[in-house]
């Protein structure tokens, strides 16, 4: 019954599907925001110094594995912890209770936790950009041909991030550590999200 289709991802217009729309139309509506968002991640990656000198296979492999982690950082602010709301791409805001009553659960709660911890670090735009680059190159390495070059790129980005973070908050040594601890959080989120994706098929 189409009325019961739950669209948990806030890149949909609304969490409940329009009952008059076919699954294909629902998917096309979603891809109107999903596809540009993925393209944006690719454009972002092209601007990471050193990323374009990786092999094409390794660029694609990193992007496939890391796109959702980057999007979770990029859209973390849609999950408003103070208000306990999620803003969908239409601009409409839904309370945590309402979304839970629709059937959303652990992934939603984990995303809220992540959003809360990330915003607590009060990153500047520059810090957030460099952190996002670290997220992408720190993603799962399955299928990577030249692990050494990816590790070298990761190393240089982490060094740059440490320099930037310590410059803006010299006294707060723990800030950089807390930031790096977001990486395993993102991996957990990504694994939970992947589980949901497995149950989703587009034909």
């Amino acid at each position: 019954n189409r009325k019961d289709i739950l669209l948990a991802c806030p890149m949909n217009m609304h969490p409940q599907a329009d009952p008059n729309k076919t699954p294909q139309e629902i998917w096309e509506d979603f891809s109107l925001s999903f596809t540009p968002a993925v393209r944006e991640v690719v454009e972002f990656a092209k601007h990471i110094p050193g990323f374009s000198s990786l092999s094409q296979n390794d660029q694609i492999t990193l992007l496939k594995a890391g796109t959702f982690e980057v999007l979770m950082v990029r859209f973390a602010s849609l999950f408003n912890v103070k208000e306990k709301t999620v803003t969908f791409i239409s601009g409409t805001t839904y309370s945590l209770e309402a979304l839970k009553s629709m059937g959303m659960g652990t992934l939603l709660g984990t995303m809220f936790d992540f959003s809360e911890k990330l915003s607590a670090l009060e990153l500047s735009a520059e810090e957030l950009g460099l952190f996002t680059a670290v997220v992408l190159v720190s993603t799962d390495r399955s299928g990577i041909e030249n692990v050494k070059s990816v590790e070298m790129l990761q190393d240089s980005l982490i060094k740059a991030l440490r320099t930037l973070v310590s410059k803006s908050a010299p006294g707060d040594v723990s800030r950089f550590t807390k930031l790096l601890l977001k990486l395993p959080d993102l991996r957990t989120l990504n694994n939970m999200h992947s589980e949901k994706l497995l149950s989703f098929r587009i034909d």
Binding site: V38, Q59, L63, K64, T67, F68, N191, S194, L197, I202
Partner: peptide, 27 residues
């Protein structure tokens, strides 16, 4: 997870964006 992202055609979008061959679809 074998390749959950393939359910969304992620690799295709990435390849096209990387190669710069963006379909001219009305945004």
């Amino acid at each position: 997870f074998s390749d959950p992202a393939s359910n969304l055609g992620l690799e295709d979008i990435i390849r096209k964006a990387l190669m710069g061959t963006v379909e001219e679809r009305p945004e």
